[in-house]
Design a protein around this nucleic acid. Sequence first.
DNA 1: ATTTGACTTTACGTAAACGTAAACCTAATG
DNA 2: CATTAGGTTTACGTTTACGTAAAGTCAAAT
Lengths: 137, 137
Amino acid sequence: MNDLTNTISIGELAKQFDVTARAIRFYEEQGLLHPVREGTHRIYYAKDTVRLKLILRGKRLGFSLAEIKTLFALYDTDPNSTVQLETMLELTQQKREVLNQQLHDIKMLLAELDEVEARCKEELNEFTQQSGNSSHA
Amino acid sequence: MNDLTNTISIGELAKQFDVTARAIRFYEEQGLLHPVREGTHRIYYAKDTVRLKLILRGKRLGFSLAEIKTLFALYDTDPNSTVQLETMLELTQQKREVLNQQLHDIKMLLAELDEVEARCKEELNEFTQQSGNSSHA
DNA sequence: ATTTGACTTTACGTAAACGTAAACCTAATG
DNA sequence: CATTAGGTTTACGTTTACGTAAAGTCAAAT
């Protein structure tokens, strides 16, 4: 309707990120999104879509919505006191450790997948060499 | 008691990996572990601890226990039919994509943490340069 | 003999992250 | 004007991954 603005509705946002509108409302309920109201309807700006992108990224990494919220607090904090700043640095350090652990885990899993794949391909080679038998249960 | 064997009890296993015995029993209930029984008690061999390590690693990566179970199926499948092997290869490929997505996510997050940290340190420098004011809210 | 400690099963409780249904409003469209 | 498409709130349901009693078994130590 108001096509001159760069705002979108909840349905459009949902479609853009392949999540349900329910999920988006839930994120708002948990304090992760703060859309403006146009009458009764929610309208979303570019900054909101950035937020949603960050939420989904966090989720893919196994963070809870609560954790994601504290990560947002990191971003949003108006850095006025040195105490806050130092707290922030501690938090970033903690997150860094978690992420590095995940990096390690991923590398291990990828290595294991390599092994499985290699095993599979060997077996398949034996099959195709010995018999022209193609695959049917 | 039987200290000549390399088996351990559920309590020892729990302590080793810093999880509860309840969790371990639950993993068994879900078909992820298959300890031998000595009378009524569960006893765990080295292969079981390897399994548990894999379970926890999977969990850290945000996989559900059900997904971990199918990953185990990958390992355990007796590779007799080419169909099974090809299915396995497809699954490893899927997992690979997920893991690569996570790798990307982690790198993005780490980069964002870098920014936050840099911002913090700048602010802290301003404080310490301009005033001897140490930190109190 | 009894207490202690570690184990067992059964079963109900819980937090997180939504799904789903009900019942409503409201703007655009045939 | 009635319908359809999208939005709203409220509220209860669901799945996952365990937590937390309750009540019993069994071996070892006091």
